[in-house]
Simulated scan of single mutants.
Amino acid sequence: MIRNTVFPSDTIDTEALPAVRRIEPAHLRRALRLGWDDFLAKRGDLLFVGVLYPLVGLLVAVVTVGDRLLPLFFPLVAGLSILGPLVAAGFYEIARRRADGDEAGWSHFLDPLQPARRHGVLAIGAMLIVLFFAWLLIAWTLYEATLGRLEPQGVEGFLRALFTTPEGWTLILLGNAAGALIAALTLALTVVSVPMAVDKPVSGVAAVRTSIRAVTANPGVMLRWGLIVAALLVAGTIPLFIGLAVVLPVLGYATWHLYGMLVER
Rank of each mutant, 00 (worst) to 15 (best):
G84W: 13
F91T: 03
P166V: 05
V62Y: 07
L55A: 11
P54K: 07
H108N: 11
Y53L: 15
G101S: 14
V130C: 08
A95I: 09
G57R: 03
L46F: 01
L159F: 12
A104Q: 08
L59F: 12
I124D: 08
G66H: 02
H108G: 07
H119R: 14
V62F: 09
F48E: 03
W140A: 11
R149D: 08
D67M: 07
E151D: 14
A61T: 15
L159G: 04
V49F: 06
W140H: 12
G101Q: 13
G79N: 02
G57V: 09
G90D: 10
V121Y: 00
L76G: 01
F163A: 07
G157A: 08
L131W: 06
L162N: 01
D102G: 14
K42C: 11
T170C: 02
A99Y: 08
L59N: 07
F132Y: 15
G154N: 08
F109M: 04
A61D: 14
A104S: 13
E144H: 00
A134G: 13
T164N: 10
L128W: 02
R43L: 12
R117W: 08
V65L: 13
L83I: 09
F133R: 00
G57S: 10
V51T: 12
V65W: 10
P115A: 06
L55D: 03
V49L: 14
A88V: 10
G148W: 00
L76E: 02
G84R: 11
I124N: 07
P71A: 05
Q114M: 14
A126G: 15
Y143L: 07
E144R: 01
V56T: 10
L83A: 08
L55R: 00
L110V: 12
E151W: 00
K42Q: 15
